[in-house]
């Protein structure tokens, strides 16, 4: 019983670590968005504020998938659904 509980907790920690790998996707996506926004501002400096607000909105939406990964990690570590 003791072994089982600790084993599950350890596996939960590994799973949490694996779950936050989801952060790679949003990182790449936000980088692409920021790059394109920078290019757009370079081409049309007058539209800087519009481009920036659109970029931030899109990045915040793109961040969601990474946050789902984080949420799973949080659940595994602190709510311990499997124990």
């Amino acid at each position: 019983m003791e072994f089982n509980t600790n084993f599950i907790l350890g596996c939960s920690a590994i799973g949490a670590g694996l779950a936050v790998i989801a952060g790679i996707g949003p990182g790449v996506g936000q980088g692409i968005a920021a790059g394109h926004a920078a290019a757009a501002v370079g081409r049309n400096p007058g539209a800087k504020s519009d481009v920036t607000s659109t970029m931030l909105l899109g990045q915040a939406v793109a961040e969601t998938t990474g946050l789902y990964g984080l949420l799973i990690a949080m659940l595994l570590l602190f709510v311990k659904p499997l124990v």
């Binding site: 915040a60 939406v61 961040e63 969601t64 946050l67 789902y68 984080l70 949420l71 949080m74």
Partner: peptide, 16 residues
């Protein structure tokens, strides 16, 4: 669900 989870997870990550 996605609206509320987005807000929740963002603020929670900052708090953590």
């Amino acid at each position: 669900i996605s609206l509320s989870l987005r807000l929740f997870a963002n603020v929670l990550s900052g708090t953590v």
